[in-house]
Amino acid sequence: MSRVLPYPLLTAALLLMWLLLTSFSPGQLILGAVVAMGASRAMASLQPDKPRLRRWQIIPRLLGIVTLDILRSNIAVAGVILRGGGRDRRPGFVAIPLELRDRTGLAVLACIVTSTPGTAWVEHAPDTGVLLIHVLDLVDEAEWVSLIKHRYERLLMEIFE
């Protein structure tokens, strides 16, 4: 099993993508399966770290939270831009000490932070675990630290560690 299909999830995702891009027919199914298996074999020769999912049941909850947060900060940032950058708004950098060490978890956190308007991932020091983000509307630094730590990091640590 592991010799033929080193990454079953990746193979399934590639096959699904192939079938979405072409129309479904038995011939396309076979062709897509061949391409997906070849691609996952090529991936195996790169030898990436296999991400481990401890508790995948939380993923839908995380997705829901993130979608709503992105919607809310979309509205907030649109307001900031339309008001024309008032004097009371103070952008700035926030340093957050992270406990999350799993690389896949950090990658997901980076996606969340960057795709939320109003926060941008700037730098992460892997040795100290200090994350530097830039915030468009910085009111309270401690509030942002606790938001990232309690809202996202805790869930990600439950999922990946």
Binding site: N74, V77, A78, G85, S115, P117, H134
Partner: peptide
């Protein structure tokens, strides 16, 4: 469009980097 206007109106680069995410998310 609001995101693109943001790349025009915001003052520093690190503020402007927030603007395109409006267009790319919702």
């Amino acid at each position: 469009l609001i995101g693109a206007i943001g790349t025009l109106r915001l003052r520093s680069f690190f503020e402007r980097i927030h603007a395109p995410t409006l267009g790319t998310s919702w």
